[in-house]
Design a protein around this nucleic acid. Structure first.
Lengths: 213, 213, 213, 213
DNA sequence: AATGAATGAGTCTTCATTCAT
DNA sequence: GATGAATGAAGACTCATTCAT
C-alpha cells in the first residue's frame, strides 16, 4: 500500500527538491560554476530526471528565484498590519521579526543569487523589481511614513531612510552566503538578531522627533 | 620616434591593461562565465598574450583583486587623520569623501567580486580580511571610538555601529555593478552622494549624546 | 532481442576497445603526437566518451601499458615448465614458441612504447621492471642455469648470456612497429620465426659444452 | 681583437650547437614533446635565433639525424680494413672497438630517435636505410663472409648472423637513452664493453668450425 | 517515469612561428 | 644578426543536453 502513494508523494515533491538543491548550489558556487549533474545528485535523482521537470539549467535558475522569497515578503506586510503600538516599536519589532525570518530562511539566498546573476539574465531584474523590491520597499515606506504623519518621526527623506534601514539587512543575508560561509569567517558580522536590534535602535534615535521643550 | 621604447612601453602597461579588462568582465559576468579570450580581446591583445603575463585565469582573478582597493583604503585612513573638527563632522565628511571615492573608482568592483567568488576561491577570504575588512573597519572604529571618548557620542556598541555605518556603503558599491548596471534600473538607489550624507546624518542623530539639560 | 543488454555489452567492452585503439596509435605516432580525439575515433566513439572511461590521456597510456604483456610473460614461464627434453631443445623450442607469440600479439607494441615514453613518465619504469623485465629475465635465466648445472652448457656468465638471447627478440618487436612498419621496409629483418631459430641455434653452438674427447 | 673573430667563431659553431641541443632533447623527450624554445635555451640562444638557422622544428630534426652517425659508420669500415689476424679476432676486436665508440658518442642517440620518429617522418627511413643500415650491414657482412670463405666459420646464413651480431648492439644504444637513463635503472644492462665481448665470444663459439678430428 | 551512456560544442591553455625593434 | 613579444591554430578536457533502454 505505501508503494503507489509513496511514489506519488515523491513525484509531487520532486520539483521543490530540485529547486532547493539548485538554489543551494547556485548560491554557493554561482550559476555558471554549478554542474547540472550536481544539482540532480544533491536532490537524489539522476541527471536525466532533472530534465523531466525543467527544460534547461537556465529555467531551473529562474524557477528557483521565482519560487522563493515572495511568501516572506508578504509575511512582512502582514506583521506590519497586525502590529499595535508606537511607530518606533512598530519599526523595531517588525523589522526584527521579519528580517530574522528572512535571514534564517532560504529567502536569504535570493539576494546573493540575484546580485550575482542579474547581469547575465536580465529577466531576473524585472521579476526582482516587481516581486521583491517594490513590495518590500512599500512595507517599510509605509511604516516610516506613518511615523512622520503621526508626528513621531522627523520629516526625513523617506526613500533614503528606507535604504538606510534595509541595505544592512540585505547585506547581512548576502554575507551569510558568501564570506560568512567561509571557514574562519563565521562570526564576522556577529549575531544577526542583536545587530538588527542595534541598527534599528540607532536609526530610531536619529529618526525620532526630539521631545518638545 | 616611438622606435626604441614603444614595445617596452606596451609591455610595461600590459599587466594593468589586462587586469582592468579582467576586473570589468569578472564583475559583469562572473569569473566562470567570462572567457579568457574575452579578457584578452577587451585589453586589445590576443588570447596567447594573456598567458604571457598571467599563468592562468584563476591567477588573473587573484591578481585583479589584489591590485585594487588597498590604495583606496589607505586614502580613507589619511582623510581621517587629516581632519580637524568635531567627531560628527569627522564622520560625515570623511565617510562622504572616502566612500564617494571608493564608489567612483574601480575599487567598487571588488566588493561584488569578492562576494561572488570567495566560496570558489577561499584564498580570497584571507586576503580580503587582512587587506580590506581589517584596515577599513579600523578606520571607522577609531572615528566612532574617539567620539565616545570625547563624550560627543553615546556609549554605543562600537562594532555594531561600524556595521550600521558601512554596510550600506558596501551595498551601494555592490548594487552599482549588479542591478544598478541593468537597463531601466540605473536610478534605483538614487544619487549616491546624497544617500551617503543622509545616511550618516540619520546615524549621527542616533549617535550623538542629547544636549545636557 | 538486443534490448536489455546491448547497452551493457557495449559498456563492458568499451575500456578494452579504447585501450586497443590507444595502444595502436601511441605505438604508431608516439604519445605526444596522438590526439585524444583520434583514439576515440578509432574506437568508434566520440571524444567525450573516452573521458567517461579514462580520466586523462596519460592514464590511458599507463592503463594501455599495464593491461598488456603480463599474460604473455606468464605464458613463457609455463612453456618452460611444461617442456621435457634436453636444455638445448628447451631453449630452442621455448624461445621460438614464446617470442613468436609475443611478436605476433599486441604485446610486441609495449617494448616500443616503453622505450619511447619512459623518460617522460617515470612511473612506467617501475611497472616495466617489476612486471616485464624481472619475470621475463627469470624465465630465461632459469633455463640457462639448468643447462649449466646439468653440465650441458659451459659455465658462462648467465646474465650476459640472457641478454645475448633476449635483446634481439626485443629488437625484433620494436622494429616491427617502427622501421618495419614503413612502406618499402617490411622485409628488412626477414622472417621472424626463421631468425629466432637461427639466432638460438647460433647461440647454442657457443653455449654447448664441446663433446668430451 | 678577440671581438670580431670570437663572434665569428660563435656564429660558425651555432648550427652544430643547435643540432646538439636538439638531438639531446629529441632523444630524451621525443620530437613532439620537445619545445623549440627549450632547444634554443639549451643552446644558449633565443627562440628567434633558432629560426635563423633552421626553417622549422621538423627540419631541425632531420638535420640532427643527418649530421650524426655517418662518420662512426665509416670508422667501422676502416677498422675492419685495417685489421690483421684471424676472422674471429677480427670480429671480436672490430665489433668491440667500433660499437663502444658508437655507444659512447652521440651516434647512439640516433637509433632511439629513428625508431621513435620514423613513422611520423617517413623521409627518415630512406636516409637511415641508405646511410646507416646498408653501410653498417655491409661492414659486418664482409667480416662474416670472409670467415666463411676462409673456412674458419661454418657456412651459416649470413644475413641472420649479422642480425644476431648487431641487434644487441643497437639495443644497447637504445637502452642507454631510454630505460638506462631513468633513475635506479642505470646498471640494468651491466658494463657495455664487457657485454659486447661476451656476446661476440658466445656467437663466435657457435660460428667457428669445430676443429677437424 | 527514471536512468546514465553518449555526444560535441565550447573553453582553457600551449607552442611553433613571425616580425618589429 | 639577435631578440622576445605577439599571434592564433591546435589540442586536452568539460559539461549541458539527448535518448535508447
Amino acid at each position: 500500500m505505501p508503494s503507489p502513494s509513496t511514489r506519488q508523494r515523491r513525484k509531487d515533491a520532486r520539483p521543490q527538491e530540485l529547486l532547493d538543491a539548485a538554489m543551494a548550489l547556485f548560491v554557493e558556487k554561482g550559476f555558471a560554476a554549478t554542474k547540472s549533474e550536481e544539482v540532480a545528485a544533491r536532490a537524489g535523482v539522476s541527471k536525466g530526471t532533472l530534465y523531466l521537470y525543467f527544460p534547461s539549467k537556465e529555467e531551473l535558475l529562474k524557477a528557483a528565484i521565482r519560487h522563493t522569497l515572495s511568501a516572506d515578503i508578504a509575511a512582512g506586510a502582514q506583521m506590519a498590519e497586525a502590529h499595535t503600538g508606537s511607530c518606533s516599536e512598530l519599526l523595531q519589532d517588525v523589522m526584527s521579526a521579519w528580517w530574522l525570518r528572512v535571514y534564517s530562511s532560504s529567502s536569504a539566498c535570493i539576494f546573493k543569487l540575484v546580485l550575482t546573476e542579474v547581469r547575465n539574465f536580465p529577466d531576473i531584474a524585472d521579476f526582482y523589481l516587481r516581486e521583491v523590491i517594490e513590495p518590500g520597499t512599500a512595507v517599510i515606506t509605509r511604516m516610516v511614513q506613518r511615523g512622520i504623519d503621526a508626528g513621531e518621526f522627523r520629516p526625513v527623506d523617506v526613500t533614503g531612510t528606507v535604504h538606510s534601514i534595509v541595505l544592512p539587512m540585505i547585506m547581512l543575508c548576502v554575507h551569510k552566503h558568501s564570506l560568512g560561509a567561509c571557514p574562519n569567517m563565521e562570526a564576522s558580522l556577529g549575531d544577526p538578531e542583536l545587530f538588527i536590534r542595534q541598527h534599528m535602535s540607532l536609526l530610531l534615535g536619529g529618526l525620532r522627533r526630539p521631545a518638545a521643550t
